[in-house]
């Protein structure tokens, strides 16, 4: 079945086109969609592109930063306002992937991908669909992701991270300098904001990025030293069901998660 490609200049036209067909896919940078086209994937027969510049905007919005879904990893790295996310964007594929791969497309990336989404989950991002002023929390978005295939994400809103040290991220790979993630961990340690200011998320420790809720609870009010984080390490994989795949077994992931979490929390940078 040949695929049909439509390009719209206005976002609302693109949204309408997506809504009309269950077999349509919105086009971000195409790094995953074009792979699927090359493979002859039959699960979609329409690609909807949109050249509306609104999708490429990065703007400050009070205490938040709004990032257009069409912003590429390279643009995230190069923009001053999103500089704290550069360590995440930089590990998505090689340079030629990052010139095309968008932040919106990353939200839908299946395993073993989705490191930016792991980071956005830790940051408590709000996902805004086109035509919907409210937005949904990234937790809700991920829960219902499969059923939202024919909606278009317009932008992603994250808090302005004042102190870059409050945001930590690591991608664990077997191959250096690049490779698919065995796991990734992102932590937003906004301890000055009181209860709920700590969010920790794992990538590749479940079918999609997941919060480490037991770790978050254990870190509430704890100091970031060996003693303070001991309880968090004990419960590092509580409630999680890590997958077994070509990169690692579920057992291995459980074993190494506390090691990488420890390095991340102590800021020893060896993960």
């Amino acid at each position: 079945m040949p695929v049909q490609v439509e390009t719209h200049a206005r976002l609302d036209d693109a949204v309408r086109a997506c809504a009309q067909s269950a077999n349509a896919r919105f086009f971000g940078g195409g790094t995953l969609l074009m792979r699927a086209v090359n493979e002859g994937d039959q699960s979609f027969d329409r690609i909807i592109r949109c050249s509306d510049p609104v999708l490429r905007e990065i703007r400050m919005d009070g205490n938040a930063i709004s990032i257009g879904a069409g912003v590429t990893m390279l643009e995230v790295m190069e923009n001053r306002d999103t500089a704290f996310l550069a360590p995440v964007a930089r590990i998505v594929g090689g340079p030629a992937v990052r010139s095309a791969a968008t932040i919106g497309g990353n939200l839908y990336a299946d395993l073993p991908y989705g490191e930016m989404t792991t980071a956005l989950l830790a940051l408590g991002a709000t996902i805004r669909f086109a035509g919907d002023a409210q937005g949904v929390s990234i937790d809700d978005f991920l829960r219902d992701r499969a059923s939202r295939r024919n909606r278009v994400v317009q932008s992603i809103s994250i808090p302005r991270v004042g102190d870059a040290a409050n945001f930590r991220f690591v991608k664990v790979t077997r191959v250096k300098p690049k490779g698919a993630a065995l796991m990734s961990i992102a932590a937003y340690l906004n301890r000055s904001s009181g209860s709920g200011g700590i969010r920790v998320a794992y990538g590749n420790m479940g079918p999609m990025p997941v919060r480490a809720l037991a770790v978050e609870r254990a870190l509430e009010g704890a100091s970031l030293d060996e003693r303070g984080i001991a309880r968090a390490l004990e419960v590092a994989t509580e409630g999680l069901e890590p997958p077994t795949d070509a990169f690692a077994s579920s057992w291995y992931r459980r074993e190494v998660a506390p090691v990488h979490l420890k390095r991340l929390l102590l800021g020893s940078g060896r993960a």
């Binding site: 490609v5 086009f27 195409g30 790094t31 074009m34 792979r35 090359n38 690609i47 592109r49 390279l74 340079p95 030629a96 992937v97 010139s99 095309a100």
Partner: peptide, 9 residues
């Protein structure tokens, strides 16, 4: 910018 032509529409 570098791009992978096989996955560029």
């Amino acid at each position: 910018k570098p791009h992978l032509s096989c996955i560029t529409l």
